[in-house]
Amino acid sequence: MATLWIFILTGAVIAFFWFSRQFAESAKQHAERQAERLQVQLLSVACQKRRLGILRSGKPGIKSQFMFEFSSDGETVYQGSLYLENSHLLKSDIPPHRIS
Rank of each mutant, 00 (worst) to 15 (best):
K59Y: 13
S44C: 00
E85H: 04
D73S: 09
N86Y: 06
A46W: 03
I99D: 08
Y78H: 06
Q79I: 10
A12D: 07
M67I: 15
K63R: 14
I6M: 11
I94Q: 07
F66W: 10
S87Q: 15
W5M: 10
G53I: 03
S26N: 05
L43D: 05
L38I: 01
S100Y: 11
L90R: 14
P96R: 02
L43S: 02
A35F: 06
S64Y: 02
Q34E: 15
S81V: 10
E25C: 06
A46T: 11
A15R: 13
I14C: 09
S20P: 07
Q22W: 09
E75Y: 12
K49F: 12
L82I: 09
A27Q: 01
R21I: 12
L9P: 04
L82N: 09
E25V: 08
F68V: 01
F68Q: 05
S44Q: 02
E36A: 11
S71T: 14
R21Y: 09
Y83Q: 10
Q22P: 08
I99M: 08
V13K: 13
L89A: 06
W18Y: 15
A27M: 02
F19S: 09
A46F: 01
P96A: 04
W5Y: 11
I94W: 05
L52T: 01
H97K: 06
R33W: 11
F23M: 07
L84G: 02
L52H: 09
F70M: 03
L90Q: 14
F68P: 03
P96E: 08
R98W: 04
S71I: 09
D93W: 06
F16P: 06
E25T: 08
H30I: 04
S57Q: 05
T76G: 08
K63W: 11
V45W: 02
L38R: 03
T10R: 07
A31V: 02
E25Y: 11
G58C: 04
A35M: 02
Q48L: 12
I62M: 08
Q41P: 01
H88Q: 15
S26M: 06
G80T: 03
I14Q: 08
I62W: 07
S87G: 14
K63V: 11
L42S: 03
S72N: 04
L82G: 00
I99G: 04
K59E: 15
S87Y: 09
A15I: 10
F17D: 14
A12K: 07
K28Q: 14
S57W: 05
F19P: 02
F66T: 08
E85S: 05
L9K: 13
S92C: 03
P60I: 04
S71A: 02
F70K: 03
R50I: 14
V77Y: 08
T3N: 12
I94P: 09
I14G: 06
R56A: 13
Q41L: 10
I54R: 11
M67Q: 15
E25F: 07
A46Y: 00
K28N: 12
Q29L: 12
R33T: 10
L52A: 12
A46N: 12
S87L: 09
E32S: 12
S20L: 06
I54D: 05
M67V: 15
E25A: 15
G53S: 06
G61Q: 02
N86S: 07
E75L: 13
W18K: 13
N86H: 07
E75F: 13
F7S: 14
Y78K: 01
L43H: 04
K59S: 14
R98L: 13
A12N: 07
L9S: 15
S64H: 05
S100N: 14
F23R: 06
W5A: 10
M67S: 15
S81R: 12
